[in-house]
Simulated scan of single mutants.
Amino acid sequence: MNAGRGQGAGRHRADRRQSEVLDRLLGSGRDLLARVDALLDEGGAPADHPVLPLIARWRVLPGAALEFAAALRPPLAAPPVPGPLPETPVEWTGPAAAAFGAHWAGVRAHQDSLTARAEATAEFAAQVSDWMFAVRSDMAGAVAASLGSAEAVAVRTAVPGSFAGPGAHRAAADIGYRVLAAVAPFDPASWATRLAESRYEPSARPQPAPGRGFSVDV
């Protein structure tokens, strides 16, 4: 699936407005696509029609694709990224301070890795959100175009359960292709290494110096 769509801020805002249109078209869209699904299930599509590869790819009929897009709810905010830890939380000296300082340095180094993962997670969430807006936007456009098309008239006038004729089946296939093509793929595989778990590796503990106790700098 391609995450490139919806990258620009202008496209993102347009997608957000357009995606809200989908909710207003759901009632009419569900009715039309239920008829489309019935015709495709009953008589199939012409052998050379481009809807067939999309049905084989997604393994759903157009009505299910509409429900998928309608169920997408893009997040409104990215997850937070933690701020940096202080270099030294307290000023002190002695063997205990040296041991603590080694551990603290390890924790701070680990936090750098966690911060990089958090930033990658926020970027990933933003791209997923943009993809959701884009799918909902494109689905809204596909449903709106289908509802006002000549193919919709042919589909609505066809009698379910009887031989509707090649014209009605091709009209259903045309609408089905328009709807299924609106579901853009998204492939998270490229994020696998950036989102991999960051494991904490403790720093080597310093060798204790002779003596006991510690002193605190005031």
Rank of each mutant, 00 (worst) to 15 (best):
Pro53Phe: 07
Leu54Thr: 09
Leu54Glu: 15
Leu54His: 11
Leu54Asn: 12
Ile55Val: 15
Ile55Leu: 11
Ile55Gln: 04
Ala56Ser: 13
Ala56Trp: 12
Ala56His: 12
Arg57Gln: 11
Arg57Gly: 09
Arg59Lys: 14
Arg59Met: 13
Arg59Leu: 14
Arg59Pro: 03
Arg59Asp: 12
Leu61His: 10
Leu61Gln: 10
Leu61Arg: 12
Leu61Ala: 09
Pro62Gln: 04
Pro62Trp: 06
Gly63Val: 05
Gly63Trp: 08
Ala65Arg: 05
Ala65Phe: 03
Ala65Gly: 02
Ala65Asp: 02
Leu66Thr: 06
Leu66Gln: 09
Leu66Val: 06
Glu67Gly: 12
Phe68Leu: 15
Phe68Arg: 15
Phe68Glu: 15
Ala69Val: 02
Ala69Asn: 08
Ala70Met: 11
Ala70Leu: 07
Ala70Pro: 03
Ala71Lys: 10
Leu72Arg: 00
Leu72Tyr: 01
Leu72Phe: 01
Arg73His: 01
Arg73Gln: 09
Arg73Gly: 02
Pro74Gly: 01
Pro74Arg: 00
Pro74Met: 01
Pro75Asn: 06
Pro75Gln: 04
Leu76Ser: 13
Leu76Cys: 08
Leu76Ala: 15
Leu76Asp: 15
Leu76Met: 12
Ala77Thr: 14
Ala77Glu: 14
Ala77Asp: 13
Ala77Arg: 14
Ala78Lys: 03
Ala78Met: 07
Ala78Glu: 13
Ala78Arg: 08
Ala78Cys: 03
Pro79Arg: 06
Pro79Glu: 04
Pro79Lys: 06
Pro79Leu: 07
Pro80Asn: 08
Pro80Asp: 13
Val81Asp: 00
Val81Met: 00
Gly83Cys: 03
Gly83Gln: 02
Gly83Leu: 05
Leu85Arg: 06
Pro86Ile: 03
Pro86Phe: 07
Glu87Val: 11
Glu87Asn: 06
Glu87Gly: 10
Glu87Phe: 07
Thr88Trp: 15
Thr88Asn: 14
Thr88Arg: 15
Thr88Pro: 10
Thr88Ile: 10
Pro89Met: 04
Pro89Ala: 07
Pro89Trp: 04
Pro89Thr: 01
Pro89Asn: 04
Pro89Cys: 05
Val90Asp: 09
Val90Leu: 12
Val90Gln: 07
Val90Thr: 08
Val90Glu: 11
Glu91Ser: 11
Glu91Ile: 04
Glu91Tyr: 05
Glu91Val: 02
Trp92His: 11
Trp92Ala: 12
Thr93Pro: 03
Gly94Cys: 02
Gly94Asn: 01
Gly94Thr: 01
Gly94His: 00
Gly94Asp: 00
